[in-house]
């Protein structure tokens, strides 16, 4: 069989090499059209699209890996800060709980010799409640009121005050902020907005335990 093929080849080439060349040219042309244009062209176009899709899928996978890592890290941090978190929730609750704050403040102010005579609160923004407080008591020792405010279970920031130490008629006035952060559903399509700073929480809140 091989001999026959070789013989035909030799005869073809030797008898009419131009014919052989034409034949192979024709085969090459058909080959180019079928495998080159219809085959290779569309295959490469498809490969390009798939590479783009692969790139997008890979980056999504990477983001999810990072998110999962952050969540496992957050779980470990929550375990480490388990004892401190209730104190944080007291300092910054998810609701205003102004009545609880006022009750606490009145009790502690009374213990220091002051009476809460007036309070006005309003929401300054989503997280902040502005309060205006007036006390009846010795104005010359009104600095004690700050210790009272700090001893409440809430995080309080004093934004202003005015005392008239020499005038017992004028009541000391303090402007302060208290805070709240509401629980919002976590959008799992987004990553966590940071990490839990256990060290800071331990430093700030542990003495209160």
């Amino acid at each position: 069989m091989n001999n026959l093929i070789n013989k035909v080849r030799l005869e073809l080439l030797s008898s009419d090499p131009h014919r052989a060349l034409r034949l192979y040219l024709m085969i090459a042309f058909v080959d180019l059209v079928i495998f080159g244009f219809f085959g290779l062209y569309f295959s490469i176009a498809s490969l390009k699209e798939k590479n783009i899709e692969l790139k997008n899928v890979k980056s999504e996978e990477e983001l999810l890996q990072i998110k999962k890592f952050k969540l496992t890290d957050a779980e470990a941090s929550l375990k480490a800060a388990r004892d401190i978190i209730p104190t944080l929730n007291e300092r910054i609750p998810d609701q205003p709980y102004t009545h609880l704050f006022l009750t606490d403040l009145s009790d502690k102010a009374a213990a220091a010799g002051y009476t809460l005579t007036d309070i006005q609160t309003y929401e300054a923004d989503d997280h902040t409640l502005q309060t205006s407080l007036r006390f009846l008591g010795s104005p010359s020792e009104a600095y004690k009121l700050f210790s009272v405010l700090e001893s409440t279970s809430r995080l309080v920031a004093v934004s202003g005050f005015s005392f008239f130490p020499a005038d017992p008629v004028v009541e000391p006035r303090i402007e302060a902020f208290i805070y709240k952060v509401s629980d919002t559903p976590l959008d799992l399509s987004e990553s966590l907005n940071g990490t839990i700073d256990v060290e800071f929480l331990t430093e700030e809140l542990e003495p209160a335990l």
């Binding site: 779980e75 944080l88 910054i92 952060v181 629980d183 799992l188 966590l192 800071f200 700030e204």
Partner: peptide, 15 residues
Amino acid sequence: VGREANLVIKKTELY
């Protein structure tokens, strides 16, 4: 866990 962590993170940042 994510919800609780998110809340703690927000409160800590505010603090």
